[in-house]
Design a protein around this nucleic acid. Structure first.
Length: 481
RNA sequence: GAUCCCAUCGUCUAGUGGCCUAGGACAUCGCCCUUUCACGGCGGUAACUCGGGUUCAAAUCCCGAUGGGAUCGCCA
């Protein structure tokens, strides 16, 4: 049988990391088996609907390389793929489920429920809704409905029994039916709750593998009761552990944690983000950590999925992003880094060469502006910076180096390449009886005013241009008295 | 509270009874390379939650404790 998995986000306008990982695993489960990956929009909660949210979903999926085979935008044989357009379907199946004894019509108001709940709280009895409407016959209920009375459809659960199922990652899970809540399946607005829609849709869309967060682990038995009542095959369940912000808190929008979009905006590459999060709860069972999507489609398997929660570690993502950046072709990196460079540099310099210089030392694109801002304007710096133990520089040596450099540069005619400058500069240390560092460290300091720079004195001299170099060296000479 | 689930370095993980004096990666520390910082190379610190069993042998199996998480909505 063909494997079919689905990504079923609700359009909240925000693609958080946990959601994205679920989508990734769903995609990989299908693709690693040569199956189909379906996109379904779960918009049954009209109060949460956010304009434009669906576009964010399409955009994100495209950016990370998750191509769906069926969905609202491309169609398919099992549509519609938007739940709000499937209202009639849910109504039909809700009525069938009532006939089959798996559900009943309920006329209780939200206030009535609230009262029962309060009473339980007061008396200290654990709340479990006992629905008086269970005793209403179907005929009578239908009469009341045709009279225009508001109603919901509520699941009916026989308290004597046990339900169990086998989850691919959590193994055998078994519960007594008396502990299960008889939840609402069809709301009074006629739309289904997730609890009902997921069962109906997954069956009707021939979904074979259901992946979702493990918060659904405890309600899965209820879904299975419905599958059983309908006489439908139960799908393969793959429940996923949560991604945590820290030991106690889930990664979430409410905690102000970064979404996929936020990370991209900060300068993380989609490929790196995907690679990092696939490892949050899954392992290839070997030492490999860097995977392309093509590789993942081949090697991903559900056996590698972990049971316990994983904490999102931004430090490791940074490292991995750096790995991806270093692997980028120069031209590609230049294109990506250009806007970040131009954020702080408005002069006309050789940005392409600058890009080449910073590529090996940037992990996240948003590190670029601070790393190169000295090119635009020389920052204030302290004379202390000229004294460097390891380079064996002192104020005297620095002064000599700068004066000699000034002379040298004044007489230089070829400033067209790093090589030319390199050749001219590198004869000096020997001539002056200095080590390379003793000559070059003071120059780099005078040129940048910074402790750390993305590259050495020679490259920076080239980027700055002859005139600017002379003026900055003059400033350095003055500082050193 | 009830029910369900989870538990290896700071973090992500490998480990499915002997190959484990527990392996890899990030982070961290030290050294090397080097015109700084990085990159790269080499090395170090660092973990089986605890207590009982089972077994010749347990990180691995069983039981219990502890700790953590989830669910208990006309949200998904």
């Amino acid at each position: 049988m063909e494997v079919r998995s689905r990504f079923a986000p609700s359009p909240t306008g925000y693609m958080h990391i946990g959601n994205l990982r679920t989508a990734l695993y769903e995609y990989l489960v299908a693709k690693s088996a040569g199956g189909k990956f379906i996109l379904r929009i779960e918009d049954t909660d009209q109060e949460r609907y956010v304009e434009g949210a669906v576009d964010i979903i399409y955009k994100t999926m495209k950016m990370v390389g998750l191509k769906h085979d069926e969905g609202p935008d491309i169609g398919g044989n099992f549509g519609p793929y938007v739940q709000s357009e499937r209202k009639a379907i849910y109504k039909k199946y809700a009525d069938i489920l009532v006939e089959l004894g798996g559900a009943h019509y309920c006329f209780c108001s939200e206030e009535e429920l609230e009262n029962q709940r309060k009473k339980c709280e007061e008396t200290g009895v654990p709340f479990k809704f006992d629905d008086p409407c269970k005793n209403i016959s179907i005929e009578e209920a239908k009469k009341r409905i045709s009279n225009g009375e508001k109603y919901t459809v509520r699941q009916t659960i026989n308290p004597d029994g046990e339900v169990s199922f086998d989850d691919v990652v959590y193994g055998h899970v078994s519960v007594e039916t008396k502990t299960l809540d008889e939840g609402i399946l069809l709301k009074s607005d006629g739309l289904p709750t997730y609890n009902f829609a997921n069962v109906v849709d997954d069956h009707l869309m021939n979904i074979t593998h259901v992946l979702r967060g493990n918060e659904y682990l405890s309600s899965t038995p209820k879904y299975n009761l419905m599958y059983q009542a309908f006489g439908w095959d139960i799908p393969t369940y793959v429940h996923l552990p949560p991604i945590m912000k820290d030991e106690h808190n889930k990664l979430s929008k409410r905690n102000g944690d970064a979404s996929f979009q936020d990370l991209v905006q900060k300068g993380y590459l989609p490929e790196a983000i995907v690679n990092y999060i696939v490892l949050l709860g899954w392992s290839a069972k070997n030492d490999q950590e860097i995977f392309s999507m093509e590789e993942l489609e081949k090697v991903f398997n559900v056996e590698g999925i972990n049971k316990s929660p994983a904490i999102f570690d931004i430090e490791k993502l940074k490292w991995m992003n750096g790995v991806y950046i270093r692997e980028l072709p120069c031209e590609k990196f230049y294109k990506l880094s250009e806007p970040w460079m131009k954020q702080v540099i408005h002069k006309d310099i050789d940005f392409e060469t600058l890009a080449k210089c910073i590529q090996p030392r940037v992990n996240v694109l948003n590190e670029i502006p601070e790393a190169i801002d000295f090119i635009e304007i020389l920052p204030e710096y302290d004379t202390e910076m000229y004294i460097h133990k390891k380079m064996k520089t002192t104020v005297e040596i620095s002064r000599t180096a700068l004066l000699e450099a000034e002379n040298l540069i004044k007489n230089m005619t070829d400033w067209s390449s790093i090589e030319a400058i390199h050749d001219a500069f590198m004869v000096m240390p020997e001539k002056l009886g200095l080590k390379n560092g003793q000559f070059l460290w003071p120059i780099r300091t005078a040129l940048t005013g910074k402790q750390c720079t993305p590259t050495g004195a020679i490259e920076i001299a080239y980027l700055l241009g002859k005139e600017e170099c002379l003026s900055r060296i003059q400033i350095g000479i003055n500082k050193l008295g």
